[in-house]
Design a protein around this nucleic acid. Structure first.
Lengths: 154, 154
DNA sequence: TTTACTGCAAAATGTTTGCATAAGG
DNA sequence: CCTTATGCAAACATTTTGCAGTAAA
């Protein structure tokens, strides 16, 4: 199963000032083979180990971090582990700042209406929707200033 | 600082078949006092410890889990720790199933357009948006069947 | 009085680090 | 060669577990 061309991948690594090592190639390949699974480092490791028994889990961790830093791959938000809590019962969205790692509450009635309509139109027949939330990722322009959006709250 | 009325809180606990213990009361209060901070278990613990030195961190962990199970509070998605990765460069949304903990890719051009327009209208002057993602929480109706939505992909 | 909850400490899990060796350019 | 990356093992951080004792109803 070859979803990425190895020489393309080498070029992408070099373009990011990374050495095109065997480990990086197979980590990236494992990741693309597992697409849709949003694997953890451990799962990537399990995937590539049979064909590459000499690679260590530590290298997989380091490689994934490197790839995220260079923008080659992305971290997916998840609610398992790294647990943060919110007592606010009101449905509300969150804005994530990739730089400061802040999670900022964002409530907007129009956004709620827009999304409710959208998901009613798409009939999610096999999925019972209990709530929704929009995650914005990005960077605060001036780290020292508070983000100013209409109706930021909570 | 009293953001929640204690007797209301007792009622809410009882309504969920939970004993209204002192620990549960102060965990909930700490959580509401920290609203907007999306604290971890450790942060909740640090908050309530000065006034309640006998409470253990383990109890805070257990209490927060219990509250989530009964729907009193929510877990907030985060990208720090519990790390999952995605090599897909295309912006796409994710659906999170509260039951199975699955993260399902969801791509929909209309949804993208809707949200892009919305955030252009709100001018997020101090925030540079890199991407957005809609988190739907809920349950798959038939756990063994694939969710069928128009244009689920990847 | 009965049952559910807490505190403690140990165990399990997950992730990072430091450093000597190996491989890439 | 020179630099950067890897493998290993230890350290660290976080979360869960088991159980005896305690508090709620």
């Amino acid at each position: 199963m070859q979803l990425v061309n190895r020489s393309d991948l080498r070029e992408r690594l070099v373009a990011s000032n990374l050495k095109a090592t065997h480990q990086r190639i197979v980590v990236f390949e494992a990741l693309t083979e597992l697409h849709g699974h949003h694997p953890t480092a451990e799962e990537v490791y399990q995937r590539l180990k049979p064909a590459n028994p000499s690679i260590s889990l530590g290298t997989v961790y380091k490689t994934l971090d490197t790839f995220v830093d260079t923008g080659l791959i992305f971290r997916v938000l998840s609610e398992e582990s790294g647990k943060r809590y919110d007592a606010n019962a009101m449905a509300h969205s969150h804005i994530y700042c990739s730089n400061t790692k802040e999670i900022i509450d964002f409530e907007d009635a129009e956004l709620d209406r827009l999304l409710t309509e959208f998901f009613q139109k798409r009939n999610m027949s096999n999925f019972e929707i209990k709530g929704f939330s929009v995650q914005l990722t990005g960077n605060k322009v001036e780290p020292d200033k508070k983000i100013s959006v209409s109706r930021v709250s909570k």
